[in-house]
Design a protein around this nucleic acid. Structure first.
Length: 108
DNA sequence: GCGCTGACGCGAT
DNA sequence: CATCGCGCCAGCG
């Protein structure tokens, strides 16, 4: 695989601040690789750096990518909770996704 | 080279 | 919501 692309993906992951999350696709985009979420996932799977905040990466729907109940699933939940991220039913309770159009345009 | 399998995503149903 | 279909693509038989 392209080592350069991998480095950019890792950089994008490291760029996610504690307490916040990003989707695989989002990471890929930030790495200049639109439409390559799967690659981002693969890179994380291969990664060995313990300092990498891989737990801040989720699916675009805000769900943990691992099967519920798995060890990794649990691990990720713990780490996120530690950073103050709210989680409910395996779904991340991230930034309130602005319900109405007015909110999206004018804010709260 | 071929088919299958994913730490994926998005629009349609 | 939950599912399906399709696009995407690196590994591994």
């Amino acid at each position: 695989m392209d080592a350069d692309a991998r480095q950019r993906i890792l950089a994008a992951v490291r760029a996610v601040p504690a307490g916040e999350v990003a989707a695989y696709g989002e990471i890929a985009r930030r790495a200049g690789l639109p439409g390559r979420a799967r690659l981002a996932a693969r890179v994380l799977a291969d990664n060995d750096d313990p300092a990498l905040p891989w737990h801040r990466v989720l699916r675009s729907d805000g769900r943990i990518a691992f099967p519920a109940g798995s060890a990794q699933y649990h691990e990720q939940c713990e780490r996120l909770r530690t950073e103050g991220v709210r989680i409910e039913e395996g779904r991340v309770k991230a930034t309130r996704p602005a319900t109405s159009l007015d909110e999206q345009i004018w804010g709260p």
